[in-house]
């Protein structure tokens, strides 16, 4: 299971890459593996929305499961990844790269402190 060291993580299996006051986020390799074949991605956040940390920004569906994706940090949505609408399989193929979900202009950088580093995320206890 890939867990890139430079990223930050949530316990709901979202990742964040920080670029100045911009955060890029997606779901982790572990999350895509748990969902298995992803058939649909709906990004419910719209460009220009101001959303709080923890609000639902996307729904990812496989054949047998649907997972809500929550914003790891609050702020203004400045970009959404439209290509996932047509190619949901990207989430399986390249979760940390081409399958980023949204870019956020963070309103409160201190929220980054709520996130885990790669080591802590790796040690997270799992049900199975």
């Amino acid at each position: 299971m890939k867990i890139p060291a430079e990223l930050k993580y949530t316990k709901n299996d979202e990742w964040v890459r920080v670029e100045g006051d911009i955060a890029v986020m997606g779901i982790t390799d572990y999350a895509q593996d748990q969902l298995s074949d992803i058939v649909f991605v709906e990004i419910v956040a719209l460009e220009g929305d101001s959303l709080d940390q923890g609000e639902t920004c996307a729904v990812i569906e496989s054949v047998k499961a649907a997972a809500d994706v929550f914003l790891p940090v609050g702020g203004e949505i400045i970009a959404i990844n439209e290509s996932l609408m047509d190619s949901p399989e990207l989430v399986n193929e390249d979760p940390f790269g081409n399958a980023w979900l949204v870019k956020i202009k963070m309103s409160d950088l201190s929220q980054l402190e709520d996130l885990m580093d790669a080591d802590t995320y790796q040690k997270l206890e799992r049900d199975h």
Binding site: D37, V39, F40, E61, V63, P88
Partner: peptide, 11 residues
């Protein structure tokens, strides 16, 4: 029939 491709159906 054999097992069906449910991923294809959903996609």
């Amino acid at each position: 029939f054999g097992r069906f491709d449910e991923v294809k159906a959903a996609k």
